Amino acid sequence: MVDPTRGVLYPARLPDFHRLGAPDPELAAWFWIPEWDIAPGRSSRQDIVAYPALNLVVEPEGVILAGPTTRVSHRDLRGSGWAVGALLQPAAVAALAEDPASLRDRAHPLAEPGLQRDVAAAMASGEGRRERAVAVLADWLSARAGEIGPAARQANAMSALLMSSGIRTPEEAAGRLAVSVRTLQRMAHRYVGLSPAAMIRRRRLQEAAERLRSGGGDLAAVAAEFGYADHAHLSTEFRAVLGFTPSSYRAATAG
């Protein structure tokens, strides 16, 4: 099972955080719910190297479709609040965005006041509120997506394969799916908004960061384990996406 904090660079800073299974895994990989209550005058910064996917997010302020990211992102939490999010499968993206690539590194508001109202009511309903909020969001997503066709299912299979640790290159993924590399690229662009190579790079960067936090292995061993050419290649990727080196990250997250 994937660590629910994968992609969170500093898990110790997380507020109350829950990851719940998806009623329909063809539409969402999982649902996530943070809740926070920060003391007045203080804030909690959350640094994220997100999954190569889109997220549907309901907050007290409204509903947004958050696009795929190409760099580390952060949010400063203040006061009290919550969010209910769905990590979308490619099959769901087709019903929400004609061009997910246009949403890279940004979020698009959705005019869905009914959805926001119903999720907010569920989150205010006491014990079992998270499960009820997920059910509301999952039902809305299912109605919006409608019947899932063969192309969307193939896109889901593509995403699952590219997020598998055993896949190192787009060519390998295309061979496993019995499609051309060009077809794989078109599928990723249409259903995710990132290239297959970018999806692989994001997965292995998450995995490498997770391993560095756990303290396992020296930097050369971590680089080799996750498909980097050498320690320098790993360091270049860290600096380009995260803005710091693997060694400084390990030092910052040491227990």
Results as ranks from 00 to 15, higher is better:
residue 29 A to C: 06
residue 22 A to L: 04
residue 20 L to A: 09
residue 98 E to F: 00
residue 56 L to K: 01
residue 49 V to C: 09
residue 112 E to R: 08
residue 97 A to Q: 07
residue 19 R to S: 12
residue 67 G to L: 00
residue 48 I to P: 00
residue 47 D to I: 00
residue 99 D to F: 02
residue 95 A to R: 01
residue 80 S to R: 15
residue 88 L to R: 03
residue 13 R to W: 04
residue 99 D to S: 14
residue 60 P to C: 10
residue 105 D to L: 09
residue 52 P to H: 05
residue 50 A to D: 15
residue 86 A to S: 11
residue 92 A to L: 03
residue 68 P to N: 05
residue 66 A to N: 13
residue 102 S to I: 03
residue 11 P to D: 06
residue 33 I to L: 15
residue 87 L to C: 10
residue 88 L to T: 06
residue 95 A to C: 05
residue 46 Q to Y: 02
residue 11 P to Q: 04
residue 11 P to A: 00
residue 75 R to Y: 09
residue 83 A to Y: 06
residue 58 V to C: 07
residue 102 S to K: 13
residue 53 A to T: 12
residue 43 S to Q: 13
residue 99 D to V: 07
residue 61 E to T: 11
residue 68 P to R: 02
residue 10 Y to N: 04
residue 64 I to T: 14
residue 13 R to H: 12
residue 98 E to H: 06
residue 26 E to S: 09
residue 78 R to E: 14
residue 21 G to P: 03
residue 26 E to N: 07
residue 60 P to R: 13
residue 65 L to C: 04
residue 65 L to T: 04
residue 66 A to Q: 15
residue 36 W to K: 08
residue 47 D to H: 00
residue 60 P to N: 09
residue 21 G to W: 08
residue 42 R to T: 12
residue 37 D to V: 04
residue 113 P to D: 04
residue 78 R to P: 00
residue 66 A to V: 11
residue 45 R to V: 14
residue 75 R to C: 03
residue 46 Q to P: 01
residue 56 L to G: 05
residue 72 V to F: 03
residue 28 A to I: 04
residue 44 S to I: 06
residue 37 D to P: 05
residue 113 P to V: 03
residue 102 S to L: 13
residue 94 A to M: 00
residue 18 H to G: 05
residue 78 R to F: 03
residue 21 G to A: 15
residue 57 V to F: 06
residue 103 L to S: 09
residue 54 L to N: 01
residue 48 I to K: 09
residue 106 R to K: 15
residue 44 S to V: 11
residue 38 I to M: 04
residue 67 G to P: 01
residue 79 G to M: 11
residue 44 S to N: 12
residue 44 S to A: 12
residue 67 G to A: 02
residue 78 R to M: 10
residue 72 V to T: 10
residue 101 A to M: 00
residue 35 E to T: 15
residue 94 A to S: 10
residue 99 D to H: 13
residue 10 Y to R: 13
residue 41 G to T: 11
residue 47 D to C: 04
residue 86 A to H: 10
residue 79 G to V: 10
residue 34 P to R: 09
residue 42 R to N: 08
residue 56 L to I: 05
residue 53 A to N: 08
residue 79 G to Q: 12
residue 104 R to A: 13
residue 67 G to Q: 00
residue 104 R to I: 09
residue 97 A to E: 14
residue 114 G to Y: 03
residue 24 D to M: 01
residue 65 L to Q: 07
